[in-house]
Design a binder for these strands. Structure first.
Lengths: 206, 206
DNA sequence: TAGATTGTTAATCGATTAACAATC
DNA sequence: TAGATTGTTAATCGATTAACAATC
């Protein structure tokens, strides 16, 4: 019912709504949200309509109601557990990151092949990958953040999938091969920078 | 001529091609690349055709030639300079990151408002934001990585734009308001995780 | 030659927008 | 009431795919 493009938009709406709420507003209009998000007002109304969120013909949309509906859709009543694999530069930063709770998520464990990493004190326990199944079973984990080096990315991903992981947030600069039922979201700083450079360059020429 | 969707695909092709090359291959076929990238073979042929990259009717595409063409398109003959703003968890990880050179980029400086950060030794010089203009002028920087806290993100972004930045890779969980000529790419771990959870959940139900 | 593969044109599909009716 | 705004249906637009011709 809600596809990938739409999901992204809904997340954008929510960000904007949270901001408006923080500013003390209680209601908003499709054109205001359009201003905030860069998404057209018609599309916003259509999205809301399709999700069964109704506004008032003259009075716009109630921000709290919108946020509640979005919360329902993203189903975050129950805290979701996540694991992190790989404690290099990025992995370490992500362990220290404090925002999981706020997103109703919980980073329950980290994994690294280097035993030295496992003796150091982090915010969460650090295990060997041998213990993966225990952790995923105990905490009902289906999503993993993967911040391992390029050369071991595919192998690690396959191992994660074998052990029940269905979603991977992949920081390694590798196109992972995974079965159809597994979803991979790639985060690649170089690729993002390159695209920024390309498109800002285009505009200079135009 | 090359839009945002297509740019992403081209970057994907390149990743796949680099991998095939590393495996010792010299040529490839649209259906092989399709397998690697998840993009349909027809679309791959159409993309290549549109970019003026020709294959051989029977013999497929030459990997090196493809990579050269892609290199031309992304215009990385000349090293591109980048700056980083904000040396928190993520910022510090990005300073330590070693991949810029490989992508023909150069991280020339970092910025932080905290003077303590500026005395510590990093891989690049760390300045106060007051020195931004000097740096962007000296190194001809038009793209910045922004890893500052949420509360100062908009202010920082505006300041960057005032000082000539045209592309921002934004790690703060904020929808930035920037002029039309500026491009923002957002990286938000929470949002990515949430989407993974949503879509993997969908599939469980289906 | 037959078969495999590219490259292109037409068809389809899906997403977005335009137009406008409903109504507060 | 008039005006603003939502919500929906039809139109448009763009991206992807299907079909097939070209050719190695």
């Amino acid at each position: 019912m809600v596809n990938l493009l739409q999901t992204r938009r809904l997340q954008r709406y929510r960000m904007a709504l949270l901001r408006l709420k923080k500013m003390g507003l209680q209601k908003t209009f499709s054109h205001s949200l359009s201003e905030e998000t860069g998404i057209s007002a018609v599309l916003i109304r259509k999205d809301f309509s399709q999700l069964g969120i109704r506004g008032r013909r003259r009075g716009g949309y109630n921000i709290d109601r919108l946020l509640e509906q979005l919360k329902l859709i993203f189903g975050s009543e129950k805290e979701q557990n996540v694991i992190l694999v790989g404690l290099g530069n990025i992995g370490s930063a992500l362990v220290k990151y404090e925002g999981y709770r706020q997103g109703n998520m919980n980073l329950v464990a980290a994994f690294d092949i280097d035993p030295a990493k496992r003796t150091r004190r982090y915010q969460v326990p650090v295990y060997s990958l041998e213990n993966l199944r225990d952790v995923t079973d105990t905490f009902d984990v289906s999503v993993a953040i993967m911040a391992v080096p390029e050369f071991s990315a595919q192998e690690t991903a396959s191992y994660l999938v074998e052990n029940g992981i269905k979603g991977i947030l992949n920081f390694a600069p590798v196109l992972l091969k995974v079965p159809d039922h597994v979803l991979v979201n790639n985060i690649n700083v170089m690729v993002e920078l390159e695209r920024l450079m390309y498109h800002t360059g285009i505009k200079q020429k135009a």
